Amino acid sequence: MSNRRIDSPGFYIAQLTRLHRKALAAEVEELGVNYGQISLVMQALSCPGKSQDEISNTLGIDKAATARRLAALEKSGFIVRRENIENRRQKLVYPTDKAWNIEERLRTVLEESKERSFRGFTPQEREQAIDMLIRMVDAYRESLGQPPFEEKDNA
């Protein structure tokens, strides 16, 4: 067996994603949401009234998948979608009291997860790691004809 280092960022990103999902899944399910809904709930909490399309673009999720996930969150009482009076084709997403009630615990769970990810990193290394990940995301977004990541998108 070879001790060669795997020279594929995709391999490590996939590993990190699987481990992240495994670590968070049980904790967020206790709050009534699943792993795939975390980012949508956080968008609703951080940007009440953001359109469904804007959420889809921010998270890089296709519009049909976003609509399905939001419908599930609406059914479970975490969000409501309202028609935009200025553009009736647009749905605006708002958190409900149920979402506000889990906000503090959800943010704590996410902060604890971030700390696990950066355990052993210096503050400078943390910043460098995030900068490199943003550059990688931007490279892929550009190759797919999407605009670059914007800090404000990550609510």
Rank of each mutant, 00 (worst) to 15 (best):
M1H: 12
R4Q: 03
R4C: 01
R4K: 11
R5Q: 08
S8C: 05
P9T: 06
G10P: 00
F11W: 11
Y12I: 01
Y12W: 15
I13Q: 08
A14K: 13
T17L: 14
T17P: 00
R18I: 08
H20L: 12
H20K: 14
H20W: 15
K22T: 00
K22M: 14
A23S: 07
L24W: 10
A26S: 15
E27D: 13
E27P: 00
V28E: 00
E29A: 13
E30M: 11
V33P: 00
V33A: 00
V33Q: 00
G36I: 05
Q37M: 10
S39D: 04
S39L: 04
S39G: 07
L40D: 01
M42V: 10
L45N: 02
L45A: 04
C47W: 04
C47I: 07
C47T: 12
P48I: 15
G49A: 09
G49Q: 14
G49Y: 14
G49T: 05
G49F: 13
K50G: 00
S51I: 05
S51F: 07
S51G: 10
S51N: 09
S51T: 14
D53C: 11
E54I: 01
I55R: 02
S56N: 14
S56A: 13
N57G: 06
N57W: 03
N57L: 02
T58E: 06
T58D: 08
L59C: 12
G60I: 05
D62M: 08
D62K: 06
K63Q: 09
A65L: 07
T66D: 10
R68K: 04
R68Q: 06
R69S: 06
L73Y: 00
L73N: 01
E74I: 08
E74L: 15
K75H: 13
G77K: 12
G77H: 15
R82K: 12
I85L: 12
E86P: 00
N87Q: 10
R88L: 13
Q90N: 12
K91I: 12
K91H: 04
L92T: 13
D97I: 07
D97T: 03
E103N: 02
R107W: 01
R107L: 13
V109F: 15
L110Q: 05
E111V: 13
E112F: 04
E112W: 07
S113P: 03
K114M: 15
K114T: 11
E115Q: 12
S117G: 10
S117M: 10
F118Q: 03
R119Y: 04
G120W: 03
G120V: 04
F121A: 06
T122K: 08
T122P: 10
T122Q: 13
P123A: 11
P123Y: 02
P123R: 09
E125F: 02
E127N: 14
E127G: 06
A129T: 11
A129I: 02
I130D: 04
I130S: 09
M132Q: 09
L133P: 01
R135F: 09
R135S: 05
V137E: 05
D138K: 13
D138Y: 05
A139T: 06
Y140A: 08
Y140T: 09
Y140M: 08
R141V: 07
R141E: 11
E142I: 15
Q146T: 01
P148R: 15
F149Q: 15
E150W: 07
N154F: 14
N154G: 14
